[in-house]
Design a protein around this nucleic acid. Structure first.
Lengths: 106, 106
DNA sequence: TTGCTCCTCACGTCACGTGAGGTGGC
DNA sequence: TTGCTCCTCACGTCACGTGAGGTGGC
């Protein structure tokens, strides 16, 4: 698939994929006769995984360490991320309460 | 109070206050005989307010429109922010569930 | 002169957004 | 030549972080 096709089917931007390449997370599998960048199935799967990790709050540099890591390492990282997400949820709860207090005082 | 004193008492960094000044959110009330930047009580209160709005997720440009706005405008902005925070909370709930699913599948 | 504290730039960060300028085949 | 799609830079974004280089009084 060309870059455009990958972007459309996976819902990522051209610039994001470019960013992943710069970070060393993915590599184009080649170019077609017109010089268009091509990505194979494995690379597309990697891009999907990267997007998923990003949604979970991992940074690019963390994903770099995670994407080719053994399952147990991934599992532990995910468990830590769940703890972090729970903290985030707590913070948001507190902020909602705080904002509501201020609203009532106005 | 000097910049250092403001930073220590309010828990902000020198660079953050500098950023607020650049954005036009606050202005130093003057300089002392040594050329140190000074901030009066009103300015310190503004900095506190800015930090609070930032915690609630407002961006600097939004705070610029909010900090001198009438109470009703602030109230409405806060109500919208609460809605947004609730959406954020939902997203995090979903992410926690998703991460836990992945963990179970490993 | 050394040491301390402050000042004002100004580049770096992060993950892209948003063009700019150039190429290749119809 | 025009029009289209792609390419590869490269500056811009956001709210500061992190120095660099210079000043003033002990």
């Amino acid at each position: 698939m060309t870059l455009r096709e990958v972007c459309n089917t996976l819902g990522v931007t051209r610039r994001a994929v470019q960013g992943y390449e710069k970070a060393g997370l993915v590599v184009a599998s080649g170019k077609n006769e017109r010089g268009y960048l091509l990505y194979d199935g494995k690379t597309q799967a990697r891009i999907k995984t990267i997007k998923l990790y990003q949604r979970l709050g991992f940074k690019i540099i963390q994903i770099k360490d995670l994407i080719d890591a053994p399952k147990e390492v991934v599992k532990q990282a995910l468990e830590e991320q769940v703890d972090w997400l729970k903290c985030e949820r707590e913070s948001i709860e507190d902020l909602i309460a705080l904002a509501n207090e201020i609203i009532r005082s106005i």
